[in-house]
Design a protein around this nucleic acid. Structure first.
Lengths: 133, 133
DNA sequence: CCTTTAAATGCAACACGGTTGCATTTAAAA
DNA sequence: TTTTAAATGCAACCGTGTTGCATTTAAAGG
């Protein structure tokens, strides 16, 4: 399914920056840092980029990963839909080359603690990627 | 062990802001948002606060939790030492009242994926705390 | 207790991403 | 083609992170 169709299916108007974002993020399975996204899409205003990312996240087309320094990384959602935005994956950052990738988890993780009710879990791991070790 | 002794033991000079930070974070088992920390310690320059937090983190006396919006939360380290800064806990944020707390995990978590080597893992969960559900 | 010095602090300044308001443009429905 | 709600661009502000540098201070040594 092409990007335009995907947008329409999620009640989003087909615009240049939306196609550009989906195109950029679709070129790799890695998560892209915000700064790189902004550089690639420099022809657009950064406010527009900001709001477009919000819109695409809200519709579950993309998701954001936060690294320890607070840097944001964005990636396409392959396992999300409008109804259930669920991530059965963790975000892994290679401390050597710096790439961030989504890694599928074998099964849904369940944590529990007395008294509390857990809705969602985010996992961020660091180490060496397959190219760097 | 009092704060001054703790600082000396970690080769840190005993200064007013360091005592104040340890005192503030020690008053609760919850993690404090940066903004609250800055408000409480408004008598000190924010650069000093910034560098002091870095120093205390480097020595393993405190640690930082990042929430989804990128907000930083700080808490004392109870299970860290100079040699092994390890967290067998996750950070839990109540989406109702907003408090962030460290929750001990029953056992060390192990994840693996083909080709990659994982050094450390950070887990952030969201849901309702015991007061709010 | 006094001197010395490396470390800590305060201040200024800048970078960057997040965020909002508002006027203009545009996608797409009628 | 007209219409309109949505999307965009621009300006502006905020908070946090970060660095350089001059001043102050903790604490070691005499």
């Amino acid at each position: 399914m092409d990007a335009a169709t995907t947008l329409k299916k999620h009640d989003l108007k087909v615009t240049k920056i939306r196609l550009a974002i989906l195109d950029t993020l679709g070129k790799t399975e890695l998560a892209k840092p915000y700064a790189e996204l902004q550089a690639t899409l420099a022809e657009f205003d950064r406010t527009t980029l900001y709001r477009t990312l919000l819109a695409l996240m809200e519709k579950g087309l993309i998701h954001k990963a936060l690294e320890e320094n607070g840097e944001s990384y964005y990636a396409l959602c392959s396992d999300c839909s409008i109804e259930t935005h669920v991530h059965d994956h963790m975000h892994f950052k290679c401390t050597t080359c710096g790439v961030v990738q989504c890694i599928e988890l074998p099964k849904r993780l369940k944590f529990s603690a007395p008294g509390i009710h857990i809705d969602s879990i985010e996992i961020v791991a660091k180490g060496q990627c397959s190219n760097c070790n």
